[in-house]
Design a protein around this nucleic acid. Structure first.
Lengths: 242, 242
DNA sequence: TAGATTGTTAATCGATTAACAATC
DNA sequence: TAGATTGTTAATCGATTAACAATC
């Protein structure tokens, strides 16, 4: 294993470091392996995984290696072994509590994602500022007034916060989370947050994502119909549903 | 401009190609520039943008150049000019209709995102299979039975589809979209879709995203507290809200 | 003019892909 | 054994960052 992929600690143990692209592929592997397990398989090869997920087999092999899984030439990887290693590596064996702020439609949707718990994340409480929303549980979860967050986060040792408020409120919410000792913020508001260095922010900016999608579409269409001055995506007069 | 960043077309016009990382930063620039415009500024420098968004100034300059914006040494870029160029480049001047399938909580949330229209995307109709949902408008948008999608998509020349159904249904929905002539799919279901080559799929896999977040947090905590055998994210017995 | 900022080329960095030896 | 598949090193590719000349 390459030196840069790990950090040696004083006590002799080793902390594996994995690049973000790799990290985002690991859950894909886990999902496919779980499916294969259900289908009754006991071993699997990189080629199989790569084919199904439309990836490069070498990439899959490198990813698995960086997690610490070992396979056997000619045979492949032990399905149960890889699944377990992935779950351990991704920290899915221990569920951690999280707070969510902004019980609007996106917030409510996330509160309903039961499968987050299988990925180590349990949203335990929601917060909001609207009196109309506070008090009524959503998907079985309490909605508390926002000002209670810092104190409660500290007392409950909450490390993860989810922000689903409008962009204008997001920075203020982030500040409260930092005050409460939260160390990682999953930010769905379309704005860049300013936080202390020790706090990780992960932006889920749907507008940026949308821009990438529509631009890709536009480019593809342009390449097929190089029609100068005409927007290939321009709506035409369309039949309406009767 | 580098040869690889553009495609020359027979008619002499040129199609600019921009990398995905760059593409995802463009909306960030647009947002900040709009703010600056409101604040009364007329020009802005890369340094300003970079400082505010925590990016490298050279990167910002390169990104803007790849879009085709020109600035003036010593002065910077004309705010209105850059904003307009970005909007043109991102195709935000023409709004395009889209279909959404899966009027559950995530689907409903997306139907409520009014600002998508400012980014060139108008979700015109939703589809679902549940009779209880069909017929009742959500955020003012009709919910039709799924089987009507292919025909309607063709008649209305819909090019963009959004999938917010459970993973088990997603492939079937994608097939219907392809049948209806849809060319770009924004997929929120946690599964890799198989589609013909000419159809673009953009995956918004929150589970993969979550894995990246929690792993980053884990690594950070580990680096600070190299405590062998102890999970730094393990919940402790916590005070409960009274 | 002086100096800040753009435009552009070169260097670095990191991820992906290719090549191939080891091995079951 | 033969051959498929892993493990690992090298080559390629592309994005970021640095350096610096051009210019207002």
């Amino acid at each position: 294993m390459n030196v840069r992929t790990q950090i040696s600690r004083p006590d002799g143990t080793v902390l594996k470091i994995v690049s973000e692209p790799t990290l985002k592929r690991l859950p894909l592997y886990h999902r496919f392996l779980k499916e294969s397990e259900l289908a009754g398989r006991e071993t699997i090869s990189c080629t199989d995984i790569a084919l199904h997920l439309d990836l490069d087999p070498t990439q899959v092999r490198k990813d698995l290696e960086s997690v610490g899984v070992v396979g056997r030439p000619r045979i492949g990887y032990g399905l149960l072994n890889v699944i377990e290693e992935l779950e351990t590596f991704l920290g899915w064996n221990n569920v951690h509590d999280a707070f969510l702020v902004g019980a609007g439609s996106m917030g409510s949707a996330l509160l309903g994602y039961r499968k987050f718990e299988q990925c180590g994340l349990k949203v335990v409480t929601a917060f909001d500022v609207k009196p109309a929303i506070i008090g009524t549980p959503i998907h079985g979860k309490q909605v508390l007034p926002l000002e209670k967050l810092p104190n409660l986060a500290q007392r409950m040792h909450i490390l993860i916060g989810i922000i689903t408020v409008p962009a204008t409120e997001a920075q203020a919410v982030a500040n409260l989370m930092v005050e409460g000792g939260i160390r990682a913020i999953w930010n769905f508001a379309p704005i860049r947050l300013h936080t202390p260095e020790h706090v990780i922010v992960h932006n889920e900016d749907l507008y940026c994502s949308l821009a990438a999608l529509s631009q890709k579409l536009f480019t593809t269409l342009q390449m097929k119909h190089p029609n100068p001055g005409v927007d290939p995506m321009a709506p035409t007069i369309a039949a309406l549903p009767h």
